[in-house]
Design a protein around this nucleic acid. Structure first.
Length: 425
DNA sequence: CCTGTCTGCCCC
DNA sequence: ATTCTGC
DNA sequence: GCAGAATGGGCAGACAGG
C-alpha cells in the first residue's frame, strides 16, 4: 500500500498538470474511451487483413477475441475457417430481445412459436465429455465447483458421451417452488463453504437447449430439432416447460400459468431458428410482466457522469410510512426519463435542494413519480429492509402531492404477496 | 480474527 | 438487468 | 434496427485496518 502511494506520488510529481489529469482518470477508470468488443473485432480484421465476418464468427465461437487474434497471428486465416464448436471451451450465449405480450411474439415469429417458461435464475452452459463436466456462466466464467449437484445430475441424466447443453439454474424451496433470485446468488459463484450452503439452499437445473452431441454440432440446426434431440438425450433432468402454439389466447394462459407458479415469464423461440452465439436478435423473445406500479416521491438525487455530466440523473425513491409520516427510500433509478426530462427535472430539484453532500443533493420531498419494477427484494441497504429490483420511472405524477404517495405498508404487503407464488427460506 | 469498504471480462 | 439516444 | 452509454440491487471475495 505504502509502496503504491509512493509510486503514484512520484508519477504525478513528474507529470504536467494535463498529464496528471489523464493519469488520474485512467487510474480511477474514468477515461470513457468507449472501446468495446465490436471495435476490437474490426481492429483485428484490419490488422490481419481478414474479412470482418470471419473474425466475428470466430469471436462468437471462441467467446474470446484475444484468442482469435492469437490464432490469426500464429496460424493465419485458415485456422479461423476450420474453427468449430469446441468441447470444454464455452461459446457466447444466444440472447433475446424484449416483447410486450405472447400475441406480439406469435406475430413476430410468423404465426406460430415455441413458448418456454422463463425462470428467474442464472443461465449456464454445460460441457460434458464422459464423466468430465464443466459448467460456465453467462459471461463464460467457470462455475463448476460451485454447483456439485448440477454436475452430478448431468453425469447421471445426460445419455451421451459428449454434449454441450444450456439451461437455467434456480434456487428451490422444500416444496419445489422457486426461491427468490437473491438466494441463488448465495450459491452461484461461491468458492468457500460450498458443502455447507449446499444443504441450506438447494439449486435445480432446467435444460432448454442442446448445441452439440457426440461429435455433431447442432448450432445450425433449427430450434425444434435441437429441442427434440435434447429431450431424447436426457433422462431425469427436467426441461423448461414448453408450449408450441399460434393461438394467442392459449399462449396468454400459458404466460399466466408461468407467473402463477412464481416464474419470471416466458421466452418465445422461433421454430426454425439456428443457435446464434452472442447475438441478441428477434429469434428469441422474452416476455415479462412488472408488478403493480408504485407512486413514490423523490427525496434526493445524484449528478451523472459522461453524457449526463451536470444533470441530476439518478433519483432516490421513497414511500411514506403511515405510522411516522417519514419518507423511506425503497430504491434508486436513472431509467425512464428522456434527456429533455432529465434537464427539466434537474432544474426543479435544484430549487427544492435542502443540502448538498458530494455528488448528492437532498431535496424537499415534493416530486412524485410512477415507478415500475419487477420484484421487491429483501435489502440490507435500506432502512425499511426492502428494495425494488429494476426500478424505472414510467410517468411524472404532477397531479399527486407527496402526501398521496404509496405507503411503506403497501410496499411490504406487495413484498409479502410474492411468497404466495414463491418459496421462502 | 473481525469489520468495513471496494470490485466484478459478476449475476440479474 | 432496463431504458434512451444517435447512427 | 442496432450498438453504446448510463447506471440499479445483491452477492462472494479480496483487501485494508484495527
Amino acid at each position: 500500500r505504502e509502496r503504491k502511494d509512493r509510486l503514484v506520488e512520484s508519477l504525478l510529481g513528474r507529470a504536467s498538470p494535463v498529464e496528471a489529469k489523464y493519469l488520474v482518470k485512467i487510474m480511477i477508470g474514468e477515461m470513457r474511451t468507449g472501446f468495446q468488443e465490436g471495435l476490437m473485432e474490426l481492429a483485428v480484421s484490419r490488422a490481419f487483413s481478414t474479412p470482418l465476418e470471419l473474425v466475428q464468427k470466430a469471436s462468437m465461437l471462441t467467446g474470446d477475441i484475444g484468442e482469435v487474434a492469437y490464432l490469426l497471428k500464429e496460424h493465419g486465416e485458415a485456422a479461423l475457417s476450420k474453427l468449430g464448436l469446441r468441447l470444454m471451451r464455452p461459446l457466447k450465449p444466444m440472447l433475446a430481445q424484449m416483447a410486450e405480450s405472447p400475441r406480439e411474439a406469435i406475430e413476430e415469429h410468423g404465426g406460430e412459436t415455441a413458448f418456454e417458461y422463463k425462470l428467474d435464475g442464472a443461465r449456464i452452459q454445460i460441457h460434458k465429455v464422459g464423466e468430465k463436466v464443466k459448467v460456465f456462466s453467462r459471461r463464460l466464467t467457470d462455475v463448476t465447483d460451485s454447483l456439485p449437484e448440477i454436475v452430478q445430475a448431468v453425469r447421471e441424466g445426460v445419455k451421451a458421451h459428449e454434449a454441450v447443453l444450456e439451461g437455467e439454474v434456480i434456487a428451490v424451496g422444500r416444496d419445489g417452488h422457486p426461491l427468490p433470485f437473491q438466494h441463488l446468488m448465495r450459491r452461484f459463484r461461491r468458492v468457500y463453504e460450498i458443502e455447507k450452503m449446499l444443504r441450506e439452499i438447494p439449486v435445480k437445473l432446467y435444460l432448454f437447449d442442446l448445441l452439440y452431441v457426440d461429435g455433431e454440432s447442432l448450432i445450425d440446426e433449427p430450434y425444434l430439432e435441437r429441442r427434440n434431440r435434447l429431450s431424447r438425450v436426457v433422462e431425469g433432468i427436467p426441461l423448461t416447460e414448453q408450449l408450441v402454439t399460434g393461438n394467442p389466447a392459449e399462449a396468454e394462459r400459458f404466460f399466466r400459468k408461468a407467473l402463477e407458479e412464481g416464474h419470471e415469464g416466458l421466452m418465445a423461440k422461433r421454430l426454425d431458428s439456428p443457435y446464434k452465439p452472442g447475438v441478441r436478435g428477434k429469434h428469441w423473445l422474452k416476455i415479462k410482466e412488472p408488478l403493480e406500479p408504485l407512486d413514490l416521491v423523490i427525496t434526493a438525487a445524484e449528478y451523472g457522469y459522461g453524457r449526463r455530466h451536470g444533470w441530476l440523473s439518478d433519483y432516490y425513491l421513497a414511500a411514506r410510512d403511515e405510522e411516522t409520516g417519514e419518507f423511506l427510500v425503497v430504491g434508486k433509478t436513472f431509467k425512464g426519463l428522456t434527456d429533455q426530462e432529465i434537464i427539466e427535472m434537474t432544474e426543479r430539484l435544484k430549487r427544492l435542494a435542502i443540502m448538498e453532500e458530494g455528488n448528492r443533493v437532498v431535496v424537499k420531498p415534493e416530486i412524485v413519480v410512477e415507478v415500475a419494477y419487477n420484484e421487491i427484494q429483501k435489502s440490507p441497504k435500506y432502512k425499511c429492509g426492502m428494495a425494488l429490483r429494476f426500478a424505472r420511472i414510467t410517468r411524472i405524477r404532477d397531479d399527486k402531492s407527496p402526501e398521496e404517495v404509496d405507503t411503506i405498508q403497501k410496499v411490504r404487503k406487495i413484498y409479502e404477496k410474492q411468497f404466495e407464488k414463491k418459496a421462502r427460506l
